[in-house]
């Protein structure tokens, strides 16, 4: 229903409830990047990575550079906690494919090349996943662009 209520659920690790709130909040506020991001992470944490991918894809398409390194600005769902939960408690419940997909998604906010490695691993096991391929292509483009701008600036 509201992002604030979802924040409360996220803080208290009630992820299913948070996802339900965020799904409705996104209907009411479809352009909110903060809601999109939390919902996407909610999907990842509740082992619904395939539902997270279209959201990620749209965010990457809109503005990938603004996502990178901007994770902990949202303290209700810090990266370290998210990473611990995905690789700890839920690890056994998740399939290996979903685990790499989940790690690929969350690392995108921290370390793009590392994220690409996970995403490519996930794609190797799920080659029909169009959303995943779309994200991979955009991430590859972003890395290529970053490298060329770095090398250009080193010549000037």
């Amino acid at each position: 229903m509201t992002e604030m209520l979802a924040n409360y659920y996220l803080m208290n690790h009630k992820f299913e409830a948070a996802v339900a709130e965020l799904e409705t909040a996104l209907i009411n506020c479809p352009n909110s990047l903060s809601i999109k991001r939390k919902l996407m992470l909610g999907y990842v944490i509740t082992d619904r990575s395939d539902e997270a991918l279209p959201l990620l894809s749209s965010m990457v398409e809109d503005d990938l550079p603004s996502l990178v390194g901007n994770f902990d600005s949202d303290e209700v769902c810090p990266f370290s906690i998210l990473h611990e939960i995905i690789t700890g408690t839920h690890k056994s419940a998740r399939s290996a494919e979903n685990l790499t997909k989940s790690l690929g998604i969350i690392w995108l906010f921290q370390d793009v090349p590392k994220s690409l490695i996970y995403l490519e691993q996930a794609y190797a096991n799920d080659t029909k996943n169009v959303s995943l391929l779309k994200v991979i292509n955009m991430v590859r483009g972003y890395i290529k662009e970053s490298r060329s701008s770095v090398s250009q600036s080193s010549y000037t």
């Binding site: 229903m1 209520l5 299913e16 409830a17 339900a20 799904e23």
Partner: peptide, 10 residues
């Protein structure tokens, strides 16, 4: 009904 159930659609 949704209000009473915290908008939990499930």
């Amino acid at each position: 009904l949704l209000d009473q159930n915290n908008w939990n659609q499930s």
